[in-house]
């Protein structure tokens, strides 16, 4: 089924947590395979959060469908062994969606700060 790419990033907001974490773990222009994305998510949260393979690849499948990430076969210099891995990179649309989700979360955070639920950092 060809991917449907909505033009409006706001249409995908709010995002599933797993998708948002993957978008944050992927940096602009960088290709990562699935295991590396798992490690990146763990590292960026200092080990507090982890994403398991089932959730990760379910998210990646949807993100590819929605055009948030693009995939490719492993480059020639990948000699990790094992089955061929696919690499994923965040698209500009994915970045826009991540921005939209971040703006939404920031708005919620501002409310929490205003209500002194948490301190203002």
């Amino acid at each position: 089924m060809p991917p449907r790419q909505p033009r409006d990033p706001e249409a995908l907001v709010p995002l599933k947590q797993s998708i948002y974490r993957v978008l944050l773990a992927l940096t602009d222009g960088e290709w990562l395979h699935g295991y590396a994305i798992m490690q990146a998510v763990s590292q960026m949260t200092d080990g507090r959060e982890a994403i398991l393979p089932g959730t990760l690849y379910a998210a990646l499948a949807r993100m590819v469908d929605d055009g948030l990430v693009e995939g490719r076969e492993a480059p020639d210099d990948d000699h990790s062994g094992g089955p061929a891995r696919r690499y994923y990179r965040r698209t500009s649309f994915g970045r826009a969606v991540a921005r939209a989700e971040s703006e939404r979360l920031r708005a919620l955070l501002d409310i929490a700060v205003a209500q002194k639920i948490i301190g203002n950092k």
């Binding site: 690849y57 379910a58 499948a61 094992g82 089955p83």
Partner: peptide
């Protein structure tokens, strides 16, 4: 989905 991703998923699982 299995056809597209199961090998990757199993590999990732094994590495972790």
């Amino acid at each position: 989905h299995r056809m597209a991703y199961s090998a990757e998923m199993t590999d990732t699982f094994a590495r972790e």
